[in-house]
Amino acid sequence: MMTAHLPQVSIWREVRTAVETGSPDESAAILAEQSRLIRRSVLAMIGRARAGHIGGDFSVTDILATLYFGVLRIDPADPGAPVRDRFILSKGHCAASLYSTLAFSGYFDPAELDTFMGPHSALNGHPNRTKVPGVETNTGPLGHGLPVAVGEALGARLLGHDTRVFVVCGDGEMQEGSNWEALMSAAHYRLANLTLVIDRNRLQQGARTEDTNALAPLADKLAAFGWQVREVDGHDHAALLQAFAPADGARPVAVIANTVKGKGVSFIEDRVEWHHKVPTPDQIDLARKELA
């Protein structure tokens, strides 16, 4: 198991404090910069590994940056603290963006990111909690994160812990039946300490979600299942910060984050083939310039 990288934890603390104490504009600017760093890291990791899921990595980046640098009550130096906010990336194939975010938060040495998907690396193509500090549960097969998050939220309540649980699902992932089982449970148990974030980039591996197995009207469905729904621009950090505020009332919160798959690099944005295509060296140079 890797251990915390304390110099990086100090940097994370400074950024976290700046986001908390800054004006809304200042905070958003700081989170935008963290997002840019994460995207650059993801680009480098995928370029080295010659594998990964760049489209989804880039659509979820701003969500991850906002949570880790602006919302979650965590201590990367003590990842096993009994009382902590929990985060699950249910769309585990976007591990590169999660690993970058965790490393920049200090959970482990950012130098480890160079090993992504390399032989015997802790940084598998999908996250493994027994190897990577900060990962709460192993994901990869879709439709697993939300049920586990429901259990964590219920468990925290039973233990009397002031814990918030966040889980990010892909929008295509919402086609999994297990998610709808869990949506029912969370509403039934009135888990106001649970926030589901749906990375609504409207693309899945093979086609547009609405051409495959349409999710619309997604907000209505979630509301009908008993959730409080907040719909935001998933790349607007100020809006995300607001959307991640605690629940009003006793219902769990679903944030539909409208995103662009491949966000940040013009030729990758909103194109189905970039689900897991690997950029050529030339494309990486171009992408790096766009993320400068």
């Binding site: 009994p82 929990r86 709460e136 549960t137 439709g143 697993h144 939300l146 049920p147 586990v148 998050a149 429901v150 259990g151 964590e152 939220a153 219920l154 468990g155 925290a156 039973l158 233990l159 812990h161 814990t163 039946g177 297990s178 089982e181 869990a182 029912m184 449970s185 039934h188």
Partner: peptide, 18 residues
């Protein structure tokens, strides 16, 4: 309820919570 995938996932989350 009658939802076994959620059943086991919730169990894992409860264990994760302690």
């Amino acid at each position: 309820g009658i939802a076994e995938q959620n059943l086991v996932g919730v169990g894992a989350g409860l264990a994760a919570a302690g």
